[in-house]
Amino acid sequence: MKLSNALSNTKNDILLNPNAGTFSYVLHRLTGLALAGYIFAHIIVLSAVLSGPESFTQRLALVQTGIFHYLEIGLIAVIFIHMLNGLRITVADFANLTRLHKTLLWLSILIFCAIMAVTFYVFLF
């Protein structure tokens, strides 16, 4: 299938099926893409180690400014959304709890909120 067709199909599917499952599916793809992007950024930062300790420290200092500090909260959010949802569908699949997928979604959201509360506390206070 052509990529443009696939993308337009996906767009329509999201609009035509406003379900909890679609919502988590979309979040899962988006956070997946974000994490893939982060991995590259992460590798670029760490790769400075090849040019010696000094350049590594320098590069690291670059990403330890305020804005990156806040972005790290986002990173944690993205990681946990992806992880919790991944766990949720694994549990649904392998414990045959498919009929409970919405309950599991609420449970994941609950856990996610708790994690984020702790995160905010640690990062901001």
């Binding site: 599917d13 099926n17 379900n19 909890a20 499952g21 679609t22 988590s24 599916y25 899962h28 569908i89 649904a92 699949d93 498919t98 009929r99 997928h101």
Partner: peptide, 8 residues
């Protein structure tokens, strides 16, 4: 992708 739309 375990979207559950089929069940829905």
């Amino acid at each position: 992708h375990t979207v559950f739309n089929c069940q829905e």
